[in-house]
């Protein structure tokens, strides 16, 4: 079973519906007691980084997630949920993140010199695989997925990049280290490839459960 963390932000309905279509059982909850029963967690989210971190603290989910990851259990962050996995973000004000992955969310604007381009990065962009053999990319190809974000992860750690996209520079699209995985785009809105990625995460979760048994 997958636990979707409800911390008051984001489109939880479409993530849960996508899991339903894939016949993946899930629980959508803000209660860490309930979420603890799951074999894998999804941290969704749209909205601002600062608000999201505050809500995770208020709802006392922060320590739960940190312990979850320390225990080696699978966690998937989506969009803002992915950015939260990193060291922090400069959105609105500098805010510390969960710190599972090295990197900082920066405004798109500051990444390129004197070139006028559209922000948010909104729409379908093509994936470029950095780790084609990664289990998250099983049965997918370098196709298009749906992005919408105004801040972009900047990281020195090449080894956490599983797939990237190009938008006036490199955009980390699928990232991961061990049991912590993230997608900057919305797999639940990315048609066939997106569904496949969620299915792959479902498999990772199922394998983890079998290993623990």
């Amino acid at each position: 079973m997958i636990g979707i963390i409800d911390y008051g932000m984001g489109n939880l309905h479409s993530v849960s519906k996508a899991l339903e279509r894939l016949d993946l059982t899930y629980v959508l909850s803000e209660d860490t007691g309930e979420l603890a029963e799951a074999d894998g967690l999804i941290l969704p989210g749209v909205g601002s980084f600062h608000d999201a971190m505050n809500l995770l603290k208020e709802k006392e989910q922060l320590d739960f997630i940190k312990k979850w990851v320390a225990d080696g259990r699978p966690l998937l962050g989506i969009c803002l949920g992915m950015q939260l996995l990193f060291d922090g973000s400069e959105e609105n004000q500098d805010t510390e993140g969960l710190g599972f992955l090295p990197g900082y969310a920066r405004s798109f604007r500051k990444s390129e010199d004197n070139v006028s381009y559209k922000v948010p990065h909104m729409g379908w962009n093509k994936l470029q695989f950095k780790q084609p053999d990664h289990e998250m990319l099983t049965n997918t190809e370098e196709g298009h997925v749906y992005f919408v974000h105004s801040y972009v992860m900047r990281t020195e750690a090449e080894d956490i990049l599983i797939a990237t996209a190009d938008y006036f520079g490199e955009v980390p699209a699928v990232v991961g280290k061990g049991n912590v995985i993230g997608t900057q785009f919305h797999p639940e809105k990315s048609s066939r490839i997106g569904m496949q990625l969620l299915e792959n995460f479902g498999k990772i979760v199922a394998e983890g459960r079998n290993n623990n048994e």
Binding site: N11, K17, Y146, M195
Partner: peptide, 28 residues
């Protein structure tokens, strides 16, 4: 529940509450 691409809803949205209702129902 069935669509795996983004969608927008417009028309008659007059308040933050209206927006919340539509977004929580699953619009992007």
């Amino acid at each position: 529940g069935t669509l795996a691409i983004p969608f927008t809803v417009g028309g008659g949205i007059n308040s933050v509450d209206d927006m919340r209702t539509i977004l929580l129902a699953g619009a992007d």
